[in-house]
């Protein structure tokens, strides 16, 4: 049973459980993306269990709900774990992760057939535009919901991210919150060597966004940034410095753990570290 709390210690404990379960389902599936699931675990824990996002898991299409778009669509080990723990579907159904005839359509990358998922992602660079479109809709309908999206740092190399950044500036979209899971590591290489993103705060600022930079594994900072009142005229980006594979020593900072499932022994070691 997952509780909603703003108690930091409880959230840290929940984040640990989320990490364990994410690794477990990736292991059971035999494939998946552990590194980027572990790096985003504290952020998603805060969003879903820290009282930040307003939602009713039993009514996932509630028009007034806050939205979340997993733009870095490969981190489904994390997303499905969080959605199940938040009550969008039973945790038992996680056995269908990456399996044929999956009861909740728990595909390797998300699809809206899964309760709690707004749109398909998995081709990087699209989620910020989608999140922005949802945010614009709130304005038209006179609703005050917020839209959160989790971006990967490698994903910021996609040009469309910056198209969307310009659009949100143009429309002064103030209910859009992008969170960059800045884990510094992509599939092939460290992000910096693929194409350097820094100075990243300056880039977002130049595109007209309110920028907050935090340690994405410090729950106090994560909660503090997510709770801060929004600017009236600007979208917000939270640049969360994270570590790929966070919490499992042999996975941390390693490209090798971008898209490989842990085997039995590795899982056992990882779960021990996450006790």
């Amino acid at each position: 049973m997952t509780v909603c709390t703003d108690d930091i210690a409880s959230l840290e404990q929940e984040a640990k459980e989320v990490r364990r379960q994410s690794l477990q389902i990736i292991h059971d599936a035999g494939s998946g993306h552990p590194g980027g699931s572990l790096s985003g675990a504290d952020i998603l824990t805060a969003l879903y269990f820290g009282g930040i996002m307003q939602f009713d898991a039993s009514n996932p299409k509630d028009p007034a709900r806050d939205r979340f778009v997993l733009s870095k669509g490969h981190a489904t080990g994390l997303l499905y774990t969080v959605l199940a723990r938040a009550g969008f579907f039973p945790q038992e159904d996680l056995v269908g992760y990456r399996k044929i005839n999956s009861k909740r359509n728990l595909s390797g990358h998300p699809h809206p057939k899964t309760p709690g998922v707004e749109i398909a992602t998995g081709s990087l660079g699209q989620g910020l535009s989608v999140a922005h479109g949802i945010a614009l809709s709130a304005r038209l309908d006179g609703l005050d919901f917020k839209v959160y999206t989790l971006l990967g740092d490698g994903e910021l190399q996609e040009g469309q991210i910056w198209e969307a950044a310009m659009s949100a500036q143009k429309f002064k979209t103030n209910n859009l919150i992008a969170i960059v899971d800045f884990n510094k590591v992509a599939q092939d290489n460290i992000t910096k060597d693929l194409k350097d993103l820094e100075p990243l705060e300056d880039k977002w600022s130049a595109f007209g966004w309110e920028v907050i930079r935090i340690d994405g594994h410090n729950m106090t900072e994560v909660m503090g940034a997510l709770k801060r009142p929004l600017d009236k005229t600007r979208p917000r980006v939270i640049i969360a410095d994270t570590v790929k594979g966070k919490g499992v020593s042999f996975m941390e900072g390693k490209t090798a753990w971008h898209g490989v499932a842990p085997g039995d022994e590795d899982l056992e070691r990882a779960l021990k570290e996450l006790e």
Binding site: I119, V130, I134, A138, S167
Partner: peptide, 15 residues
Amino acid sequence: GDMVCTAAGLATAGK
């Protein structure tokens, strides 16, 4: 590309 995905976002919210 941004336009098509923004449209998709609006559509998910009932437009």
